[in-house]
Computed example of a mutant assay.
Amino acid sequence: MSYCLNPNCPKPLNPENLNFCLTCGSKLLLKERYRAIKPLGQGGFGRTFLAVDEDKPSKPVCVIKQFYPQAQGTSTIQKAVELFTQEAVRLEELGHHPQIPNLLAYFTQDDRQYLLQEYIDGANLAQELDHQGAYNEAQIRQLLADLVPVLEFIHQHHVIHRDIKPENIIRRTSDRLPILVDFGASKFVSSASLNQPGTSIGSAEFVAPEQVRGQALYASDIYSLGVTCVNLLSQNSPFNLFDVTQNQWVWRHYLNTPISENLGKVLDKMLEIVPAQRYQTAGELLAALNLQPQKP
C-alpha cells in the first residue's frame, strides 16, 4: 500500500508501487525513494507516517515527519517552523547514539518540510503503563540505569531535551532498551545562554517550574525524569501527586507498593522545586544510584 502525503487528498490510500496518487496526482515518493505506507499519528505541528526506503534492497522501514501545523496566527506558525527545524538540527548535532533515533534526511518537497528518521519498533512508556499497570522499584531502577546515561550524553553535547515524559520514551522491542524521542522542544545551550530566559516549552504535567518561566537548565531534564518515575510508580497524573496548598510532592501517598528509602530520597532530590537543590548533572544522579557515570 502507498499513502498519499497531500493533506487535502480525499482518498490517500493507493495500491503499492504507484508513483503518483490515483486521486489527486501527487507524488507518492519523497526524494524518489521514501514511500509512506500508513499514518502513525498527528500532533499540533505535523503528521507522522510509517514508510519504507525503496532505495535500499532490504527496503527498511523508517518514519516520515511532515510539517503540517494546526495552529493559527503568523507568530505561532513561525514558532512551529522553528521547532520542527530544531528537531532535525538537534538530531544531526547529537550524531549517533543507540538510544536516540538516527536522522536520515531533512528536506522540502512540494512546499512542505519533511524529516526522515529511524523507526523505533515498540510501545512508549505511557502505553506500557496503561497495559501492565504501575511499575515496581526494580523497574524504575532499571529505567534510570538505562536512561540517565542518555541524558548524560545529550547534556555533554550541550542539549537540553525539555520534554521528557512517558510518551517520549519508547521501549524498543528488540532489546527492551528505552529510546528517547521527540527532540522538537530541545535546546542547544552555551555557557552564556544557559541562564538567559526563553520560551516556555514542555508538557505541563512533567515540566520543571523554572522551565515554565522560560529558563530551562540541565537539571530541568532531571526533574522531568523524576516526574516520569513517580507517574510510572503511582499510575497517577503528576497533578494529583503534588499538593499545591503545601507546595510539596505527595507522591508516596499514591503508591500501591512502598519503595526503599534510598530510591525515595533519590526521587525526592530529582523533584526538588528549587533547581540548585536537585542533582545538577546526570553523572551526579548516576552516582546516587550507585551506577558508574559514563566518561565524556
Results as ranks from 00 to 15, higher is better:
residue 240 N to A: 12
residue 245 T to Y: 10
residue 26 S to D: 13
residue 144 L to E: 01
residue 253 H to K: 15
residue 127 Q to E: 15
residue 21 C to L: 04
residue 113 Q to R: 13
residue 209 P to F: 07
residue 291 L to Y: 03
residue 112 R to E: 05
residue 128 E to I: 14
residue 148 V to D: 00
residue 150 V to G: 02
residue 17 N to I: 06
residue 132 Q to I: 15
residue 193 S to R: 08
residue 124 N to E: 03
residue 214 G to T: 11
residue 196 Q to D: 11
residue 277 Q to N: 13
residue 3 Y to T: 10
residue 119 Y to T: 02
residue 121 D to W: 08
residue 292 Q to V: 15
residue 105 A to Q: 12
residue 84 F to V: 03
residue 21 C to W: 03
residue 159 V to S: 06
residue 235 Q to R: 14
residue 176 R to L: 08
residue 50 L to K: 00
residue 62 C to P: 00
residue 191 S to I: 15
residue 72 Q to M: 10
residue 163 D to R: 00
residue 294 Q to P: 01
residue 253 H to M: 12
residue 94 L to H: 07
residue 137 E to K: 01
residue 292 Q to Y: 11
residue 63 V to L: 05
residue 194 L to E: 09
residue 237 S to I: 09
residue 77 I to K: 11
residue 66 Q to M: 09
residue 101 P to I: 08
residue 73 G to M: 12
residue 259 I to Y: 00
residue 164 I to H: 03
residue 194 L to G: 03
residue 35 R to Y: 05
residue 219 A to E: 04
residue 143 L to F: 00
residue 70 Q to H: 09
residue 32 E to W: 13
residue 141 R to C: 12
residue 103 L to V: 08
residue 243 D to V: 13
residue 181 V to K: 00
residue 13 L to R: 13
residue 293 P to T: 12
residue 294 Q to A: 12
residue 60 P to E: 07
residue 50 L to H: 04
residue 272 E to Y: 10
residue 208 A to K: 01
residue 42 Q to D: 10
residue 66 Q to D: 02
residue 85 T to P: 00
residue 29 L to G: 01
residue 26 S to Y: 11
residue 264 G to Q: 06
residue 17 N to V: 09
residue 8 N to S: 13
residue 11 K to P: 01
residue 222 I to F: 02
residue 218 Y to P: 04
residue 25 G to R: 07
residue 74 T to Y: 11
residue 138 A to I: 14
residue 23 T to L: 04
residue 155 H to E: 05
residue 106 Y to G: 03
residue 259 I to E: 01
residue 246 Q to K: 15
residue 135 Y to F: 15
residue 278 R to V: 06
residue 219 A to G: 02
residue 14 N to E: 08
residue 271 L to K: 10
residue 55 D to F: 12
residue 27 K to H: 15
residue 226 G to L: 03
residue 253 H to C: 09
